[in-house]
Amino acid sequence: MTKMLNLKLKVWRQDGPDDAGHFEDYSTTVADDASFLEMLDYVNEQLIADNREPIAFDHDCREGICGSCGLMINGQAHGPQKGTATCQLHMRKFNDGDHITIEPWRAAAFPIIKDLAVNRAAFDRIIESGGYITVNTGAAQDANETPVPKEAADAAMDAAACIGCGACVAACPNSAANLFTSAKIQHLNLLPQGQAERFGRTKAMVETMEDYFGSCTNYGECQEACPKEISVDFIAMMNRDYAKSMIVNRRRLGERKVG
């Protein structure tokens, strides 16, 4: 049976990056089988009908795989349900009469564009600096030509599940992006194809990350907030690879010093 929920919302409204911003109160009634974003859609429809500015928020696939959505709901990134992006959070997780506070991600590297939408271009800068493999692609090789142990494939796949939503940064009291960066490094570093550029990649991506974000103090909040439940184990692997990159960086191997 569908239940109707009467909710009191407190939503962060901000006209643009330079606006100070403030909370605004709304009340709405939604069915408990609505998703969280559908609930915001209802609120927006009402706002538009009243000739008021709708709430801006990021969303795209609404099936938990694109990484566009992301809201701080009652002080938790992506809300109260573990391993769930905001779009896959449903109103049945809330009770009739609940007060819900919605805020955007907050980090210096994630400036607010408008209301609840933030600019996550800093993640793109990290990927650009090494989150890929440079391969001379010849003829297509046979499947399974490169043997990969099952365990390595599984671990790489766990890291590759990262959708880049930024919840790790949002949840981290230090605004650190170590979970994102380590996932994007390790899904390549765990596989044979990633070995050639392993240490150059690690160094470049870590250094780019540190231009934008805070430092990891091992709170573990990121792993709890992550909609893909990526483990902080990858951060430890990144830390080890980064230390090794100080000594075994192959980036400058081609340089020959004479005399």
Partner: peptide
């Protein structure tokens, strides 16, 4: 470095899940 990374704090109370008192 961490203070620079979040100059504007969350304006509503945080609900920590993993970060314990010691951390």
């Amino acid at each position: 470095m961490n203070h620079r990374a979040r100059p504007v704090k969350y304006q509503s109370p945080r609900d920590y899940i993993a970060a314990n008192f010691a951390a």
